[in-house]
Design a protein around this nucleic acid. Sequence first.
DNA 1: GAAGGATAATACTCACGAGTAATATAATTA
DNA 2: TAATTATATTACTCGTGAGTATTATCCTTC
Lengths: 197, 197
Amino acid sequence: MAARGRKKGADGEKSRNLLLHIAAEEFSKNGYHETKISTIVRRANVTQPTFYLYFQSKEAIFQELVDIFREQLVAYVQQSRLETGLEKGSIEKEIKQRLTNLFSFFKEQSELTRIGFYMAKESSEIKSLIAYQIEQNLRKEQQDGYFRTDVDMQTVADSLVGIMERLTETKLLKNLIEPEDLANEIVRLLLFGMIAN
Amino acid sequence: MAARGRKKGADGEKSRNLLLHIAAEEFSKNGYHETKISTIVRRANVTQPTFYLYFQSKEAIFQELVDIFREQLVAYVQQSRLETGLEKGSIEKEIKQRLTNLFSFFKEQSELTRIGFYMAKESSEIKSLIAYQIEQNLRKEQQDGYFRTDVDMQTVADSLVGIMERLTETKLLKNLIEPEDLANEIVRLLLFGMIAN
DNA sequence: GAAGGATAATACTCACGAGTAATATAATTA
DNA sequence: TAATTATATTACTCGTGAGTATTATCCTTC
């Protein structure tokens, strides 16, 4: 006996992906320090040295997940900007669409989102990245006369990120609301304010 | 030699407070897991057993800090509500005042705020606590006709907490802005919206 | 001024979990 | 088919850091 050595049909890429996937689940559910490599490999039905065949360290696999989140997010934002830029509806519709896209992304990639937003060392920078993109868009539209000139777009962008972050946590990832409805509420609030008229 | 035993002028309460204080600094700067008891006691000029004379465990001291934050925060909100309730200025002024108070608290208690908002397991619940208070206030004012009836005050309250959280991190705790000015910007944004008119 | 409680230090233990050395089997290539 | 490469296992090491057993000194009280 002593089942040792390479297994029949063993596929490195498959193993690596599996480990990455399970790691995302674990990190997202339990955080960095509570997540044990031993748990990951047990769940993946491989042994510890196999893990280190594909990842340099625990740090490394976590970082890889953070990087994936950041890259996917940036790509999504870029693409989203192109798409919505085309069909030039009202400013309200356009912003609504952008927000809906973002929320959809967060919902689809809920595990990566939790990691990138709430656990990574660079969480703050990642959020700043998004905030900056948003700020640029808003500034442009402000110059085009859509918005009041006395609001600081950096603050607005930061606020928007804060809103997204919090509502993603309290409502979106708990499946209490759909991306589009969430986007709707926020846009109405930020565009027109709360004051009765 | 062999300086052992109780020191002259040794004061238990003093030692305990010192440890608590330094722990707050360390946790706030480095997070739970990166913070070592050995570091805390070294900085406090005591030894490890002394630490365990005053705190059951690392968990316990961290939890104590979280609890302090929660209690102080709730107390602050209660008091703030009474105070501003009295001088009934405009709704705008009142909300501005409440926000200013909160931001001032976060700034004063920046270490506890970081711990309670960004590190504690119960971060989410703590924020929900605040959100709930805010929601109640807003609902009341909505019924009094100050606000549009088609905005969901739970979403607004959550949004407000998200905004506070993010702007506290990016601006307030970096001393880039004063509590009052921050409150001002947010209130204008949320009350009147961004749309030019 | 002796006893008991409070405050502290010296010098440990010990589990836990990240990471590894050595080895074996399957797949691929020459 | 022999050598090489890729994939995997068994069975470890080893640092780190939380927590402790024991003992000593100061302070208070009676």
